[in-house]
Amino acid sequence: MSDVSIDHLFIKAIGRAGVQFPASKHEISALLGGTELKLSDNHVVRASSLVDAIGPDYFDNGAAFFCAYHSALYRDTWRKEFLSESI
């Protein structure tokens, strides 16, 4: 069985954490705390680690945040390293 959509679980986590924009990377990570995204039985990632990997430190709006998140997600080296990592 393939992994659950990381975007789906990440958006769920962001919503549950009560993230509102504008917001800084630090604020978003703090709100997410130790929330984990279970992509499969043996593949779990910490939501805040996805935020920590983002380049910009501040997001004026949700679109700015999600673009930055995807930019980081698709960085080839990071993606390869990160998505193979289990916590």
Binding site: I11, Q20, F21, P22, I54, G55, P56, D60, N61, G62, A63, A64, F65, F66, C67, A68, Y69, H70, S71, A72, Y74, R75, D76
Partner: peptide
């Protein structure tokens, strides 16, 4: 305008390709 993850065309138009790894999210 503030919270949507997609469709903020004013911001997106001034940050073309912001989701590309090559543009650093900006």
């Amino acid at each position: 305008q503030k919270q949507a993850f997609m469709g903020n065309l004013r911001w997106q138009g001034d940050h073309r390709g912001a989701s590309s790894p090559e543009t650093g999210g900006l």
